[in-house]
């Protein structure tokens, strides 16, 4: 059972291995704060949608399962969106349209379809936590690289340091996201973490 959890972090890491959920990954990895915020939002949605779908998996017939999944996921995304607006408005603003776009993050619908709709609640919850954590960690790795090179320093919730070199703004531009992702994927392939 514990495998359901650890699989998500390395073996089926959603970003590096499955190459899913790329839009938010590239778009909001400009700062570590954003990466943590987006990661937490995705974990929340993934956890509760997996839980719900696993609970009602025997009631939903095959033909209407996708609309059912979509409504469930969209409901939790709306909860995240409203809560962010109410309690963390600055994070809500910097994540922008990528908050509602969590609905179409292939990772979440993918896990609903491939795992939660076929497995008991406990395993689905562990799967959600593992995949969510794998997503968040990958996001943080990418954002550390981009923030460090692009702004010449690191800051997490206001704490951090700056390095004595002039930053290459290139890395926080969209082009920098593509480059960092490409090089990371290539290196991970080289050392054999991914095929």
């Amino acid at each position: 059972m514990i495998k359901d959890f650890t699989n998500g972090i390395v073996k089926v890491n959603p970003i590096f291995v499955l190459a899913l959920g790329l839009c938010p990954t590239l778009a909001i990895s400009t700062s570590i704060d954003n990466a943590i915020g987006m990661g937490a939002a995705v974990i929340f949605v993934l956890l509760f949608s997996n839980l719900m779908i696993s609970l009602i998996r025997n009631v939903i017939s095959k033909e209407v399962r996708i609309p059912c999944f979509i409504v469930i996921i969209a409901t939790f995304v709306t909860i995240v969106s409203l809560s962010l607006q109410a309690y963390l408005p600055s994070l809500y603003e910097s994540l922008g349209i990528y908050v509602p776009l969590i609905v179409v993050n292939c990772i979440i619908l993918g896990r609903a379809e491939a795992f939660a709709s076929k497995n008991p609640v406990s395993r689905s919850v562990l799967d959600a936590l593992g995949i969510g954590l794998g997503f968040t960690l990958s996001l943080i790795i990418i954002s550390i690289i981009r923030e460090l090179l692009g702004t010449g320093g690191i800051s997490v919730f206001g704490y951090g340091f700056t390095l004595p070199f002039s930053p290459a703004t290139f890395f926080i531009m969209p082009a920098g996201a593509f480059l960092v992702m490409g090089v990371l994927l290539g290196l991970l392939k080289r050392v054999g973490v991914i095929r």
Partner: peptide, 25 residues
Amino acid sequence: IVLTSIVAISVVVLSSIYNITEPEI
């Protein structure tokens, strides 16, 4: 019935969450 009830539950849940968060927003 299944799809309709899921949508109905969603509407109820979201409207109550909205009512809680709206003053805060």
